[in-house]
Design a protein around this nucleic acid. Structure first.
Lengths: 351, 351
DNA sequence: CTGAAAGCGCTTACAG
DNA sequence: CTGAAAGCGCTTACAG
């Protein structure tokens, strides 16, 4: 059992409140130098740390944030988490991580536990466009921020990128290279990123005067396996596309696998563009052309927004939307990889 | 502000303790059916959840575990975390995630915060062979488990694999393929996995009657960039190796990059074997031959061990050591990838 | 059968 | 200058 204020007070022959004031460096405390010295020595000697639980109860703050995501195994969310932690740790916060696997029931269960624990703030990156869990969150008094995906009409505090613009950049890039039959591995229409990236894809085609071919849009979801299945479908068409815009990099990875199995060369037989620019994108062969968004910054900004809400007590639904940027690599333009390969290897994590 | 026991008691015209007993389904509680019904209705109506902080203070348990790792961005640790969460969530625990980037100072800071928060248990996967933080942990009364790496002479509760055997499997495999000049991209000697995998590498060579060539062992650390640098060094030797055993899969990934830049074919010009079998290993081209360890199970077993310590109050230093298994893919044996490619794509995460 | 009390370990407005 | 008290929101041994 760690030492307690009461014990320390007994040993120092003072009242617990006095020890507390010394430990917390209470500026309003007028105290005899001798007493202070005695108490401080005791504090150091016992390595006293106030019990965070008791402190949390009294002060109504736990110094804990929670992050709710589909799956930390997805590099996108791993990078996001690091951003959040980097924003939170310097302010004394630690971070609970909750994976939902995209299952609404699990998201709900986690959010309820978090509320019972009185976490100071929640960062949610697993929301659907219509999401009872988000509505529930709005009625709680807990500060929260949605990341990457928003819900309803974007009435919540939010950090993300301009998905329509990003998808347009990707599609316009392919059009610029001369492609006309451009497929889209699309996210679910139940998720904001799915909807908006479709919209950008369509807008770019229509701006270029290319008639929409419904067969060329196949729902893939956001992960590798769905990407593979959708790509199979596209390549089985009578007139398969010569290029594809994948709603995420992981979906593009699935498409790579299919192209490889079928003996198609990227980009000569099939050009591919992804979205997010996860670290893996640059490491693929050929490198994946993709829409870069500042994933780590999503996290650090989201953390700061939540902390701001906590500190000010004001829950203004600020929205921070980053401009996406196209990064051209070998998956759309064979010559592009040479430059990329010239650079030093991507930053990488430790075991 | 969420509703409190006192308020509920006032509304139900009973004492708070009675509401508490009903909420907690106290079996020893004898109560008039009418009263119970009234209280239960109120509980449901207000969606009462006891304040976890107050509960934690009283019961001396927070239902929080903490995981301390170098970097969640490394797929090894992401998989490990999922295993831990899967072991913890069903028992009502949630999990704090702390990244150290391998910096001892940060590990120490995190552990101290965690102790102040009174987390119920700690899972540590970032330890050094000589590690003051671990010694400090031993003296606390908090249940803990080391994962993957151990400290000192292995006196702590531990979950991992038999690193010597694993490294021998890897090296023997290369020897069996006819390689004689086999390099080792080695982990730091300050970490147990670094030391033991070296030992296994040396043992396999010596068993086969191959004289050790000191030039062939280059320290790479556990991550991609170090792997690339070490591989560069090996390939710059007058008599470069024809094969390399990398201390981790991420290190092997670094070696892949170098081989590619130098125009070396894998496995024809350079065979490579990794360690861990992270999901990425099967996706590399060619697939990475590696030593499989049950990463997810490391996590779930570690979680269960900590929970067991928490529940029984007994901190017996049990050690669970899994037998590693060699998985042969195209990076050592060109024909091996055909089978692998025939299989369905690897399981993958959701954005 | 239900209530009153004590106490988990803190912090801080209030006394003296 | 320092102490005593109240209270954060629970749970549970003890009374009645």
């Amino acid at each position: 059992m760690p030492v307690t204020l009461k014990e320390l007070a007994a040993r120092a022959q003072v009242h617990p409140s006095t020890v507390s004031r010394v430990a917390n460096n209470d500026p309003s405390l007028r105290i005899a130098q001798a007493t202070r010295t005695r108490i401080e020595a005791l504090l150091r000697e016992t390595e006293y740390r106030p019990n965070g639980v008791a402190r949390g109860l009294k002060l109504r703050q736990t110094l804990v944030l929670a992050v709710v995501i589909p799956d930390i195994t997805n590099p996108f969310f791993a990078a996001l988490f690091r951003g959040i932690e980097d924003g939170a740790t310097p302010r004394g916060y630690q971070v609970l991580l909750c994976n939902t696997d995209g299952i609404p029931e699990r998201q709900r269960a986690h959010l309820q536990s978090l509320a019972a624990r009185r976490v100071d703030g929640v960062i949610l990156a697993s929301t659907f466009l219509k999401d009872p869990a988000v509505r529930w969150l709005r009625h709680q008094r807990t500060p929260y921020v949605l990341v990457n995906r928003f819900s309803d009409e974007g009435v919540d505090p939010f950090v993300g990128s301009d998905d329509v613009t990003g998808a347009m950049l990707a599609t316009q890039h392919l059009i610029g290279l001369g492609h006309v039959r451009i497929g889209h591995l699309a996210g679910q229409p139940t998720v904001s990123t799915g909807v908006l990236r479709r919209k950008g894809y369509h807008a770019a085609l229509s701006d270029a005067g290319i008639a929409a071919d419904l067969d060329l849009l196949v729902e893939s979801g956001f992960v590798e396996e769905g990407g593979a299945q959708a790509m199979e479908r596209l390549l089985s068409l009578d007139r398969p596309p010569t290029a594809a815009f994948a709603v995420t990099d992981m979906t593009a990875v699935g498409a790579y696998g299919v192209a490889r199995r079928r003996g198609l060369r990227i980009p000569e037989d099939l050009a591919i563009v992804g979205y997010n620019d996860i670290p893996l994108a640059a490491r693929l062969i050929p490198g994946l052309t993709t829409v870069h968004v500042p994933i780590h910054e999503f996290g650090s900004v989201a953390a700061r927004m939540v902390l701001e809400q906590i500190e000010t007590g004001v829950l203004t639904p600020r929205r921070v939307v980053f401009a996406p940027q196209l990064v051209v690599r070998g998956s759309s333009l064979a010559s592009a990889d040479e430059q990329v390969l010239g650079r030093a290897g991507a930053r990488s994590p430790a075991e």
